[in-house]
Nucleic acid binder design. Sequence first.
DNA 1: GTGAAAGCGCTAACAA
DNA 2: TTGTTAGCGCTTTCAC
Lengths: 341, 341
Amino acid sequence: MNLKELSEHLGLSQTTVSRALNDYPEVSESTRQRVKQAAAKGNYRPNMRAMSLATGKAMTIGHVIPVESSSDVVNPIFAEFVAGASRTYSQRGYELMLTIAEAKNEESIYRGIVAKRAVDGVMLHSPKRDDPRLALLDEIGLPFVVHGRVCDSNQQYNWIDMDNQAAFQQATQLLLDLGHHRIALINGQETLSFAWLRRLGYLEALHASNITEDPELMTSADLTETYGYQTTQKMLSRKSPPTAILVSSYIAALGVRRAIGQAGYRIGKDISVITHDDELSYFDNGGAVPQFTSTRSSVREAGIRAAEMLLQQIDKPSLAAQTQMVETKLTLGSSTGPCPG
Amino acid sequence: MNLKELSEHLGLSQTTVSRALNDYPEVSESTRQRVKQAAAKGNYRPNMRAMSLATGKAMTIGHVIPVESSSDVVNPIFAEFVAGASRTYSQRGYELMLTIAEAKNEESIYRGIVAKRAVDGVMLHSPKRDDPRLALLDEIGLPFVVHGRVCDSNQQYNWIDMDNQAAFQQATQLLLDLGHHRIALINGQETLSFAWLRRLGYLEALHASNITEDPELMTSADLTETYGYQTTQKMLSRKSPPTAILVSSYIAALGVRRAIGQAGYRIGKDISVITHDDELSYFDNGGAVPQFTSTRSSVREAGIRAAEMLLQQIDKPSLAAQTQMVETKLTLGSSTGPCPG
DNA sequence: GTGAAAGCGCTAACAA
DNA sequence: TTGTTAGCGCTTTCAC
């Protein structure tokens, strides 16, 4: 069923039917009712392609997830964020186009989706400390919102993020309060903003207690189980092993725990472990009962808000970047200056 | 830059330029070269919307991820599967449209994306034992591939799946071989095929050893950390607690481990735990060193293959369903009859 | 080997 | 309030 058939069926012009369906004020209430009923009965939906060709709007938002290589892992947290965003989009009549972008093709991917008129805006995931995509998107004039922050940039842009720095500062402080001095940080790739900010929070707490960081207790890599395992193994075999470990991902934490068990240490007695990522906080330290907090819903919430920001920006391109807070764990805002570091 | 501009720039008709770009045989080699060079230099990309309007092909594949309610968790394994599929699509010039579907709207969502001409085919995630979507998609004639299997169906359809039943049969057998008799199964929603098949594998091994299952040691729910925690707590407080636990998700397994620790048991000594899901196998039992195997790459591989099946089906709708194996852990095939159970 | 013209299904001036 | 008409940017007959 297309517009032509529907209008012939109703004995009206395509224009009138289109106007009735799109709630133009000039069409009479009676015909609008008649049209809407017929459309519902015939299960009519406007052909998206034709509609966007006519209006010039793609009615689609792109989510671009960068991976370093084709074998690289995809951060599972995207699923939750994207689920939130998706809900907002469908409510507003938008579709969500997902692209997995290998870093080397990234520029051409962005230029491509713009030239193809595939999307009205994009969501940027996994930003780097100094992310070239900001400048690129500004140049091609495509609206965007960053899921995360870009540290080394003077551009104005919209972003939404968890407060990684505060979270890791607090976690480190907690361990310090429990009397730990040798606290290891098993972190993600510190070229990525999220990991860099976590590192900053960790250092902040250490320095506030006049502790100089030990480079041998700080690692940075892709957050896999194997990485957690091997790193921990190495650290535990040193002459002065850490008494506490702060892990930046619960997947890596699986490996950390495996290595600790294998080395004959007891988690929570010999060694405290705190796992903290976007999805959860897991405190397993000082002999206390392990504590767990899920923050998945915050991630989904962040997705919803980010999508709202993006659609707003698309509707009113002139709109200034916004600032607001979502939860303790979430910071949402805009930035003209670099974030610390 | 659009076709009109490009053709004017070249002093050719739109037709010729279009033909040159799409490798039609009748255009001369010299003009083809000239056109392609100019197109590359001008960074020309055909407008997707116009193209699909003209050809009637959406050049887009839909991935529909069902959630029970808006607060429901999204299985993180989708990320990896989708990443694989995405690669195949872009190689073939297709886009990937992602939809999060709340169960209650599902039918209208499928009918909608078809009526809107939004996609040429869909990938079905999280199939249920008796999934009504098969019949629905057959009725509306939309090509699809199932990521997983549908147990109670006589329809012919293409699917790709991990061999959940064999995996859980083997895991259970391993525990039996270690001398366990009271083995708990902490499973996902058994209305979903994957969990049902895992249950079947578990029962298969028990029955082969003449052990009758204990309903109090079998649970089924959404695989969250909290669920793992609470269920384990309850089981451990019984008069005869399990000596081994088989967990269907590593997220739930976090909770299982938390509860075990809190109850004063030692994992791998007092209680053996095997975690097995699509992403990983985690054996932590019988005092042996815990063993870990990542199966993420298999999941991505499955995504690639599934996408290939789907595109093939779209190209040649008459094509019969296929059968092949991907890995030990993966079963890929087609089915006319129900899977066991 | 190349071009003119029609059409995909919709929206949006401009008329009436 | 409704209809006529002309596109949106491509592909695809059909004619040359």
